[in-house]
């Protein structure tokens, strides 16, 4: 196992009302593919937020690329997020900018050059090249999900975190998105997908060696045998 890109050591997270996640220990190896399951409200989104330093653990240690999250300044967090692509279910865009500008936003904010040919290739890969000039409000749910995936990977991140990426998609579109995630994993990206869609997990396990984690009773468990 290579050096972990993300590791949790006895991590707990509490909101005002009580402990949501408890005593979680995990090491995500580079190039691994993990599904994260659990009932609604179990803390899957919170787990992912801990993974990209939107939240800090209330106990234990989260390490991103060998750096303890609590030791990171705000600029360090911004730097880390350039190495982690995030795909949310509620895809948020800058609605006043066309799709192409939204997809290249990570390059813009890091003041890197935008290669239009690479952008064209990326949009073609996610099947959105013909919508480059469209504004986000005019896109369908599936198009938005693929656009947000394109935005998440344009910086060539080492890790991709997806929170219920297929929640609003039909089965055909879900499979299309899964195919893109599997391809990215084959390129060496570390993937974590939070989902409650067991069919999607079975479909993925047929293609790649994906591990399934389950959050149950605030704790992280390794699942798989029951799938």
């Amino acid at each position: 196992m290579g050096h972990p890109v993300i590791s949790f050591e006895n991590v707990a997270y509490s909101y005002g009302g009580g402990e949501l996640l408890s005593d979680m220990t995990l090491r995500l190896a580079p190039g691994s593919f993990h599904f994260l399951t659990g009932p609604s409200g179990a803390g899957k989104s919170t787990f992912l937020k801990l993974c990209y330093a939107e939240l800090s653990p209330t106990a234990g240690h989260v390490t991103l690329f060998d750096r303890e999250v609590r030791s990171l300044g705000r600029d360090d967090v911004a730097q880390m997020r350039r190495r982690i692509g995030v795909v949310h279910q509620d895809c948020q865009f800058l609605d006043h900018l066309p799709l192409a500008a939204n997809v290249t936003l990570p390059l813009t904010v890091s003041q890197r050059e935008i290669d239009n040919r690479d952008l064209g290739d990326l949009l073609a890969w996610v099947g959105l090249k013909h919508l480059a000039d469209a504004l986000p409000p005019s896109l369908s749910g599936g198009e938005r999900q693929r656009a947000v995936l394109a935005r998440a990977i344009i910086m060539d991140p080492e890790v991709i975190l997806a929170d219920e990426p297929t929640g609003n998609l039909d089965w055909e579109m879900s499979l299309r998105l899964l195919t893109l995630l599997v391809e990215l994993n084959r390129m060496g990206k570390t993937i974590v997908v939070a989902t409650h869609d067991m069919n999607l997990i079975r479909q993925a396990k047929a293609q790649i060696a994906a591990r399934v984690l389950r959050i149950s009773n605030r704790r992280l468990q390794l699942a798989g045998a029951d799938l």
């Binding site: 705000r74 600029d75 911004a78 730097q79 880390m80 997020r81 350039r82 995030v86 948020q92 865009f93 800058l94 936003l105 990570p106 904010v109 890091s110 003041q111 935005r151 910086m155």
Partner: peptide
Amino acid sequence: AQVIRVLRLVGARDSY
């Protein structure tokens, strides 16, 4: 607020 959230999510520094 949403614009700022998106910018932070994609790695924008506060100064930017």
